[in-house]
Nucleic acid binder design. Sequence first.
DNA 1: ATAGGGTTAG
Length: 636
Amino acid sequence: MNQHNSQSSKLNTLLQPLLKLQAPVQASTYAPIFQFLTGKNLLKPGQQLHAHMALRGLRPTAFLAAKMVAMYASSGDISSASHIFHATANPSLLLFNSIIRAFSLYKLSEKTIHIYARMHSLNLRGDNFTYPFVLKSVTDLYCFQFGKCIHGLSLKDGLEFDIYVGTSLIDMYVKCGELGDAHKLFDVMPLRDVSSWNTLISGYMRDGVVDLAKEFFENMPEKNIVSWTSMISGYTQNGLAGEALKLFDEMLSEDSEVKPNWVTVMSVLPACAHSAALDRGRSIHDFARGRGLDSHPSVQTALVGMYAKCGSLADARWCFDRIKLNDRNLVAWNTMISAYASHGHGFEAVSTFEDMIRAGVHPDDITFTGLLSGCSHSGLVDVGLKYFDSMSTMYFVEPKHEHYACVVDLLGRTGQLVKAYNLISQMPMQAGASIWGSLLAASRSHRNLEIAELAAKKLFVLEPDNSGNYVLLSNMYAEAGMWEEVNHFRALLKSQGVKKNPGCSWIEINGKAHLFLGGDASHPQAKEIYKLLEELPEKIKAAGYVPDTSFALHDVSEEEKVYTLTTHSEKLAIAFGILNTIPGTVLRITKNLRICGDCHTAIKFISKIYVREIIVRDVNRFHHFKDGLCSCRDYW
DNA sequence: ATAGGGTTAG
């Protein structure tokens, strides 16, 4: 704001003498002033100047109009920019370029193309300033055929050697999913620079061809900050958090000439979030603070997400509060709402949503995914249903698959299984595995075999390899004493060799992650871990724990089942955590699957007996275990 | 006046 004011006052001393002049002023006087105003978000002075001209009956030349268009577009007033363009007779190439640039920046892609077509019909040749923006619009429209056509026209206009047009073409092919064409063009480009290489690298990354991107990165003649950041964000987006962090470290090393900027920091933070590396995230936060890179709203938003996913909701909120009110955009609000939702703080998710509406930010589908899952995780059934109804009627956001999934979950938890089933039948799209899986789980906890069979039947088709569904239904049959059906599933599981998704958990201690698989004995401290786990059942049984073997398949002996349960990966990670920390420490565990019911019960007792706060992040949400209780209140 | 990296959800 201050900077803005001082700029304005500087400007007033520049403008006032001109504005006071009564005599006619030459058109050429105005152009440099409009140019000065461009890119500085100075709409008011621009309007004053415009009025001053209009009062004197001066009609802008094409050259002046171009400057005015640029000023208006860069100050947020696209309609005035458009108006000036249309009111100018004999538009020049410069004027066409400025309106094309304006429309493409505002994502008015059809308009951009339309203007370009008009320019073409007037026999005006496009130049190196025209095509990059036309191509951006083609890319936004995701229209490959059109892009090919524009490619041809650019060659006709003699731009085959232009590096800006060439790079824009590569980007267009990449983003339209035509990687082959992009690569071909790159190969025949007579001139390439870092940007051309970077474009191709990000193209390979977005197509998941990580190895090729890496090869290009390593072989490019010169790397800049964008090259490094493209690699880091590419790794992050492809789920390779470790690689992302490694490259970030390499970038910080002394022999690297390139230093991270705010985009780099923003791109690496999700890697910490993904691997739940809280210490790592904190140190990157410290680093950003030290370099003054933590004041950008997008970095601050990424920090909120990182802390939330690493299990520290308090830090997440702290970072959110530091985002200036004006900078709290849709993404920032969504991040905070989802943070509360995943930690089971439904009330806070709801109140944050209401804050967002009051702040005048319009919600989108992601907002409602967070809000509804927050309601579901906290059992706010009526509130959730109310918001679900309001999303299309009040906020004009059409419910998608994930929203229906939240509502099915919401109804399922209160045992309204028939209602949930009816909702699924009325969905405008096909229900996927997440929805049927949620219904199956709800049917089990409410012991409704009929609905369970319906859901399971769908799941056997949708995900034939997921053993969990067979086990669940088979166990329900066993509980109902329907042994014929139980035997049928047993045989099925054996003959088809249905795979079991291997469970794994990890825990971070002193900044180092330790990974455990179910039944894993490979850790250096395995002996001590197993000794602790052997003693564990007796210890927690004394406090009231009863092992729940219904989460294991009913075709092994009871004793074996208990053993399998005691060596679930989350238990191993927790045992390791207990061994290496003192009472009072917070243990943070991340699991790749949903936490099992027996582990959930056991961890509640462990948190009390061993005096540890235990935070478990499973695929769905966070569980905060403290003093014998869990934040999910046993429904998840 | 120009191209290339982007945070949320799943």
